[in-house]
Amino acid sequence: MSRATREAYRDSLLPLLHRHPELICLDSDTGLFNAAYAEEAGEQYLNLGIAEHNLMGIAAGLAACGRVPFVNTMAAFAASRALEAIKIDIAYNRLPVRIMATHGGLAAGHLGPTHQALEDLAVMRVLPGMTVVVPADAAATEAFVEQSLGLGGPLYVRLGRKPTPPLPLAPAPVIGRAQTLRQGGDVVLAGCGPYPVLACLAAADALAGEGIEATVLNMHTLRPFDTETLVAAARPASLVVTIEEHWCHGGLGGAVAETLAEAAPTRVLRLGVPDQFVTEVGNHEHLVAHYDLTAERLVRTVHSALSPAAR
């Protein structure tokens, strides 16, 4: 059943708050938490108002005193507006603050470029000590929230907005370990986030029908990056194609290209949102289709790269 990752996070946090008194949920008036939730969480929920730098700073102060804050804002505001506080107050001090960033990628839909986050993965994965994850569905989100309990430093979790479809049944992903959803020796399709990973799976099905076997990697953790799994998948393949809801530079495609250039030079093609601010109006699914972050595009990309003319 389709479910919003931000809601999966919210609902999985509440029982954890009860079990772990050191956890605290800091809100910036996101609207994700209603009055009943706040009441249930008691003093472990605090709405600090619309002030994202302040949100990160207070979280750092609390974390320096032994608390584990889950801070809530949109990915766009975390990665741009509050970035300096994240860099200096949280990452520099290696504090266990969990940055729960909703409306990641194109999830903000018609709300436009002020609310879309197409740079957040590049920005967050460059910060020393920051763990960066992109759950592909609600179940993965729940798994990551649970796993965050054992994580020492800061964590950035890119979440969505509206419900997105679940991945076909697979074991729960583990932070730091890429998930191999399908194995094949010809090409590697690597994605992160709900629609890109589903597109990889659909494209692999289509390619298999033509006798092209694809490995599908759900690269849900951008830092620390699972070099080992990626390199092992890329070695037999002649091509790696990445797909993500992110500008083409610096995100998953960037991480894959950097890694393979050094460890196992392989041709890498990066699919993402074109190098421009979004002008199209529409919901999340419409924008994903409009910018062609689809299985069809993956198939076309593989075809043209593997065609004799391209070699």
Partner: peptide, 29 residues
């Protein structure tokens, strides 16, 4: 923070008061 007695690093202006709020809040909790 490597210097004994320094609670948190500062230098970029406008950070300290939010950190102080976090400390004060943690003490109160």
């Amino acid at each position: 923070r490597a210097v004994p007695g320094v609670e948190l690093p500062t230098g970029s202006l406008g950070h300290g008061l939010a950190l102080g709020c976090g400390f004060a809040l943690a003490h109160r909790y």
